[in-house]
Write a protein that binds this DNA or RNA. Structure first.
Length: 479
DNA sequence: TTTTGAGTTGTTCGA
DNA sequence: GTCGAACAACTCAAA
């Protein structure tokens, strides 16, 4: 009988299609699932408040499932390597398994941990649980990483993205004597002042919540997804982003569910949804190969971009009082529900970086603290794209007109009225520009859209020919 | 090495 | 309201 296996859980908080857990059961011997709280190891990108709220509930749900299966979750706090070593001593574990993560700081950390534990004589294995294609699985004809989505995705599809998900273990052999565990409350992940009512009303963290969300999406919205996904006034998106981030469901399981429901990937809706899963992988690809991008522009020309600094404007944006209804409603949706519709992320991102001309990192930081789906890869890619300095080969400087976006994608103003009750009685023809019709209690725009657009174009002119946009060389790391 | 085709999500203007 | 063209002429990736 082999000695126990520690399964170190991070962003893979599920039992089904769980490669590390599955391999630990296959190995034989006791299986000890472990969660280690070590936010310091994420350096300046430690999880934010909304993300921690989700994590608490996801761990709670996971613990119930693990208990039922026969081996309760062991919760610890402290440096990951030291904690794993302590647990090895306490349990007599002979192996440590985990599923890989791809954030630069964690990649480095995990390399060190793998080497350290192997030097201790342990069997260490890591697995892919989170992506269809891992960052090193595809490369360009020249042998480098991709910087443009479409060729990346073509290469992924050519390679094949479907793989059979693993079944959930029916039973987990627990240790004879379970090691001591902290309670979830000990981790103090929940806010001290309870602002999470809107989150509770919106979300059901955990593996079952993820399955329910997936089933609802496949039953309701996937057929018309190609169009309805752009409509914040409709329930047209999957809402799977936080579940995917925490690994409560895997993209492989999502693909399998599509197949099981006889939904053809050839059709427009499903095809565009699966491409969004591709964007998720692409974000991980870019972050892995360009680890400086959470703070530095992928396109180095933007190092010289003349960003403005204005705490007042930043605060107005954060708090949803810019005087642009679609922007303000979106920022309040974020604050209340911990989530924002994808199109609105582009709209508020463009407004912050182009109209207010504030640095995109300010936006990335605010999203990081307020999103339940905050993910370093996706957040970084999204904000670099919004700022114009990222993986977007378009030959012009893209500036959204938020009023126009509102009129186009929230034509009746239903979304705006939902999050800005002060505009409840505003006529629809004025709902996206109440400044023109005059609405009591709603601020005038803090910036003139036309003039600020012009100023952004001029600022872009200033850096256009400063240098070639050769990206910084990538620093590859091994896992 | 050089060439070629193509690139998530847009806006404005004028017919 | 709708449609097509102009915008300005950039990079990426593959052939």
């Amino acid at each position: 009988m082999p000695g126990p296996t520690l399964v170190w859980l991070r962003q893979d908080l599920r039992l089904a299609d769980q490669p590390a857990l599955h391999a630990a059961v296959e190995r034989g011997g006791a299986v000890i699932p472990v969660f280690i709280h070590a936010p310091d190891e994420d350096l300046q990108w430690a999880p934010g408040a909304a993300s921690n709220w989700w994590l608490h509930h996801s761990l709670q749900s996971l613990n119930e499932a693990l208990n039922k299966a026969g081996s309760p979750l062991v919760v610890r706090a402290g440096p990951s390597l030291d904690t794993l070593r302590e647990l090895v001593v306490e349990t007599g574990a002979e192996a440590v398994y985990w599923n890989r993560v791809y954030e630069p700081a964690r990649v480095l950390r995990d390399q060190g941990i793998k080497a350290g534990l192997r030097a201790d004589g342990l069997e260490v294995r890591s697995f892919n649980a989170a992506l269809l294609i891992e960052p090193w699985d595809v490369e360009t004809g020249q042998g480098g990483p991709y910087r443009v989505f479409t060729p990346f995705w073509r290469a992924c599809l050519q390679r094949g993205i479907e793989q059979d998900p693993l079944p959930a273990p029916s039973r987990l052999p627990g240790p004879e004597k379970p090691p001591a565990s902290l309670t979830l409350d000990d981790l103090a992940l929940l806010p001290r002042i309870d602002w999470a009512a809107g989150l509770r009303a919106t979300w059901a963290p955990g593996e079952r919540g993820a399955q329910a969300r997936l089933e609802r999406f496949l039953g309701q919205s996937i057929t018309g997804y190609a169009d309805s996904r752009d409509r914040p006034d409709q329930d047209g998106t999957s809402g799977l982003s936080p579940h995917l981030h925490f690994g409560e469901v895997s993209p492989r399981q999502v693909l399998r569910a599509l197949r099981d429901a006889n939904i053809s990937l050839e059709h427009k809706g499903p095809e565009s949804f699966v491409r969004e899963l591709g964007w998720r992988d692409f974000a991980h690809h870019v972050l892995y190969h360009f680890p400086h991008t959470p703070e530095q522009p992928l396109n180095p020309r933007f190092e010289d971009f003349p960003w403005r600094e204005s705490e007042a404007d930043l605060a107005a944006w954060q708090q949803g009082r810019t005087g642009i209804p679609i922007v303000d409603a979106a920022m309040r949706q974020l604050w209340e529900t911990g989530w924002m519709h994808n199109r609105l992320r582009m709209v508020v991102g463009s407004f912050l970086t182009k109209n207010l001309r504030l640095h995109w990192v300010h936006g990335a930081r605010w999203f990081w603290d307020t999103l339940v789906d905050a993910d370093l890869a996706s957040n970084t890619l999204g904000w670099q794209w919004a700022g114009g300095c990222g993986a977007d080969a378009a030959p012009y400087f893209r500036i959204f007109n938020p009023q126009r976006q509102g009129e186009q994608y929230d034509p009746d103003g239903r979304f705006v009225r939902r999050f800005l009750p002060v505009l409840k009685k505003t006529e629809t023809r004025y709902i996206h520009a109440p400044g023109a019709g005059g609405t009591l209690g709603y601020p005038a725009p803090i910036v003139d859209l036309k003039a600020s657009r012009q100023a952004a174009l001029e600022a872009f002119e200033a850096i256009k020919n400063t240098s070639t946009s050769q990206t910084k060389s990538s620093s590859k790391a091994q896992t």
